[in-house]
Amino acid sequence: MGWMIQEEGKGQILKRKLIRHRVSLTYPEIVDLENKEVEKTINDLIQEEIYKMIVEQGYEEDYTKEFWGEYKVKLKENNILSMLIYINSYSKGAAHGLTAVKAINVDLISGKTYELQDLFVKNGVYIEKINEIIKEEIVEKDIPLLVEFETIDKKQDFYLTEDAVIIFFQLYEYTPYAYGIPEFSIPYAVLADLIDESSPMKVLIA
């Protein structure tokens, strides 16, 4: 396997390659964490998510389908790791391929995986606020919709950057294929009053 050190510090990221019949992808492996159980938990999670994504795109049903993938680290700071896993698939004769995206947001000390609901105070107001921002942006940017956007949920796809939480949706979930993966960047400052004290965003704001 080829590898590349992504970043210095506690917990480094090696770039691994998986090549087998109909599958060719790169994926991240976390190494050098002090807690080896946490390290294994995170790496197992990454591999499980990749496998699930491939199966969901028809690996075991369509034997003409090819798969390839990559990952992008969006944040590695204050022991918070936020990354995106991309899995692409293409069936012979199809007009175009498909891309699925999965975010992994994890604490490198505890191994805790964050869902959107873990970031905010438990009153649900954050959902209304984020919905409002997304709806405004849809109008402002004249984003083409297949179905009307109503609301995110507590397990909505997201990733973190240094200054914003990015809400995203899958291909065809709301927009046509040609639009790509819809993303909505919401600065932490806009959500400051709604962020839970235990949220990783609290550390990023500080």
Rank of each mutant, 00 (worst) to 15 (best):
W68D: 14
D107G: 10
L18I: 01
Y51W: 05
L145C: 03
Q117H: 12
K122P: 04
L146T: 07
K129M: 11
T26R: 03
E39T: 03
G69E: 03
S198V: 01
L75G: 08
K102N: 04
R20F: 02
V55I: 14
M53L: 12
G97T: 06
I143P: 11
K10V: 09
S89I: 03
V190H: 00
D142A: 14
L18Y: 12
N43M: 14
E49H: 03
E39K: 12
L194G: 00
I87D: 07
I80Y: 01
D193T: 10
Y126N: 01
Q57H: 04
K141R: 15
F120T: 05
L108Q: 10
E49C: 00
I186M: 01
E132K: 15
T99D: 00
Y177N: 13
D44K: 13
E137L: 13
V139Q: 14
N88I: 04
I205E: 11
Q12D: 08
D163N: 15
V73F: 11
K10A: 05
I133H: 05
L160Q: 07
A164L: 02
L171V: 06
S89Y: 02
L204C: 12
L108K: 11
Y159P: 02
L194I: 01
T41E: 15
T151M: 06
Q117G: 00
E173M: 06
K135C: 04
Q170F: 10
E49P: 00
L146H: 08
G180T: 07
N105E: 08
W3V: 12
K17V: 12
M4I: 13
E173A: 13
A164H: 08
V165I: 15
Y172F: 15
T26L: 06
Q170K: 05
N105Y: 06
Q117N: 14
P176T: 10
K74D: 00
I13T: 10
E183I: 09
S91V: 04
L146Q: 09
I143D: 07
F169E: 02
P28C: 00
E136W: 06
E77M: 10
K36T: 14
N131F: 08
E48K: 14
Y179G: 07
Q156Y: 05
G69I: 08
V106L: 10
V55H: 06
Y86L: 11
K202E: 12
K155W: 04
H96A: 03
A189E: 13
I127T: 04
N43E: 09
E66R: 14
P28T: 00
K17N: 14
I104C: 02
K52C: 00
Q47C: 04
V55F: 08
Y126H: 11
E197A: 12
D32E: 15
K15C: 05
P187D: 04
E162F: 01
G58K: 07
M201P: 00
T99G: 01
D196S: 15
I166H: 02
S89N: 13
Y63R: 10
K74M: 15
V106E: 06
N78R: 12
D107Y: 11
I166C: 13
V121A: 02
I42S: 07
